[in-house]
Design a binder for these strands. Structure first.
Lengths: 261, 261
DNA sequence: GAGCGATACTTTACGCCATAAGGAGATGTC
DNA sequence: GACATCTCCTTATGGCGTAAAGTATCGCTC
């Protein structure tokens, strides 16, 4: 669901993301707050992790805190902003910085693996409207991490921007594919492999000319072995290798870093 | 919206996608169908193009056809399946095959550009739960096209799978970023540039230590010129170059194709 | 310490949504 | 003409996000 939040109150959203500093006015009257933005975000993440994005409602989050749905509106402008906060908080689980090894390939690989794992721990993040320019601190920190890892590669700014986009989107996309395969397996109660086989059987009936219409796809598919989960992991590594090779060939004179390392 | 369709009746969905062949039983009684799956899918696409994914309801689609929402359920099992059909129909706009030039880089670039443009023509496609293994004919045809374009690169199967995933996800991700930037600009009525400036100003207030916390990001940002739309196009090209370079370096002995071409 | 305004939270209500259930009318076969 | 079948409708159910308004609680001012 979507989670295609309206642009709504962008200012308020940003302020919440970056933790509005002097929110504590002097002279507050009224009952003390029983909740907090943090607690609400945590409850939202717990709910999304446990029940999935489709089941995430303001009522559900409120119930986890022993409140009604409307109580949340004291702390958060609306569901869209709550999702923004949840998104950034999930990304905040990423390690702060890459290990200071000299090998940028290793550093980038570690970064990609961390992001991939984080997405799979919180698959609902992938359903929050992608690439909405929310600019939360954790998201920016993750990007800074990637830039730090890539620095030794010595890319010019243009290429660097492209490489960052390609890396991020690749990880995100592969995590989404993995997560969806898992969800399908869990929802149908069918094991990954069997589900795939069933699908293929149906396809063979519906499109008997499949092999002729899609010869290359058929050929490629026949070379795949093992369950989808493993196949995704393999695609992750080989795709990442392609990306790293591309980055290496766009770097400085080709052997400067290799020799230096 | 999500479009995180339940796995629901996968069989029925697949049958619709591949155009169940002998649907016309002999001896049909009852009134003649006033609608068709095709017409409903077209209306759905028109609605999504015009009003956006958030406004896409069964009611809205029905209204475009002069019917109620419930009338659609005679033709389509539910909203999720309709979205699957819309998704595949949108991808069917892609050209059938790459031009038969010998230059695979050119062919892949053309393929990527076509997909990028298609996504931007139908931004809602990017909000349909990504990578759901729907396996519609148009989606598979697009993949076959990419494989055809990549063939001269002579990649081994493992690498090929990774490269395909990386390319597809990269294009999808960048299209999503571009589409979201456009949506933000349209929704706020603010021009791209101004919106970005405003955002930066807010950030500077909320996080005065921005430059210290994110030095590399700050440095990279300062090298960017021009409006976001152009910046995205630039990222598209430089990212694609990185990917193509990576593919080239994973291919056969490195100069076989270059010399041959 | 009385009063008052601000605050947290609730109840209620509105207008959406997808879709289950059942009925009305049209159309074909027998 | 009878009947089965099919399209399409109306109605109803149970959800959703959230606007509006009410209630209880707290802290400040006088």
């Amino acid at each position: 669901m979507t989670v295609y939040a309206g642009q709504g109150d962008a200012h308020r959203s940003l302020a919440l993301l970056w933790g509005a500093p002097a929110e504590t006015r002097t002279g507050r009257s009224g009952p003390k707050p029983g909740l907090s933005v943090d607690a609400i975000v945590s409850a939202g993440i717990a709910a999304a992790d446990a029940e999935g994005m489709a089941a995430l409602s303001m009522r559900a989050v409120g119930e986890r805190l022993g409140r009604t749905a409307m109580a949340l509106y004291t702390y958060v402008p609306g569901k869209a902003e709550l999702l923004d906060l949840m998104h950034d908080r999930a990304l905040a689980e990423l390690p702060a910085g890459p290990p200071p090894t000299g090998d940028w390939r290793e550093a980038v690989t570690a970064w990609a693996g961390d992001l991939y794992d984080c997405y799979l721990r919180h698959p609902w993040v992938l359903q929050v409207s992608q690439a909405r320019p929310v600019l939360g601190p954790a998201e920016l920190a993750a990007m800074e991490s990637l830039l730090r890892a890539l620095r030794p590669a010595g890319l010019p700014p243009r290429t660097l921007r492209g490489a960052v986009a390609a890396l991020w989107q690749f990880v995100r996309g592969l995590a989404a594919a993995t997560a969806d395969a898992r969800a399908a397996a869990a929802a149908t109660g069918v094991a990954d492999e069997d589900w795939w086989i069933e699908r293929s059987t149906q396809l063979a009936v519906l499109a008997p000319d499949f092999a002729e219409r899609f010869p290359l796809l058929t050929a490629l598919q026949s070379t795949a072995g093992g369950p989808p989960e493993e196949s995704h992991r393999e695609a992750f590594h080989s795709g990442l290798t392609v990306l790293l090779d591309g980055i290496a060939s766009s770097g400085p004179p080709a052997d400067a870093t290799a020799v230096a390392g």
